[in-house]
Amino acid sequence: MDYFSHSWLPYIYLYGVGGIFFFSGVYLVWKTGAIDLSQPHHRTWMKVFFIGYAWFMIVHGIFTILALQL
C-alpha cells in the first residue's frame, strides 16, 4: 500500500506551508527591528527560532521513518 499521502505528503505540506509562515515571521521581526541582533540575548532568541523549527522537523521525520521502516 502506498502511504505517501499519509506520511511524506503531509510532512512536506506541514514544513512547506508552515515554513512560509515561520520564515515570514522571522523576516518581519528582523526587518522591523523588533528583534535587534546587536543585542546578545536577541541573537540567542534568533538561534532558538531555527533550532525549534529543526527540532519539530526532526521529530516528525524520525517518527515517519520509524513507522515506515520498522
Binding site: F22, G25, L28, V29, A34, I35, W45, G52, Y53
Partner: peptide
C-alpha cells in the same frame, strides 16, 4: 494512532510573531 499528537507539535510556526510582536 500517533497522529493524534499533531495538534501539540504544530505551534512553532507563529512563535516569532508572538515573542517579538
Amino acid at each position: 494512532g500517533f497522529s493524534s499528537s499533531m495538534t501539540y507539535l504544530n505551534d512553532w510556526f507563529f512563535i516569532p510573531f508572538f515573542m517579538f510582536g
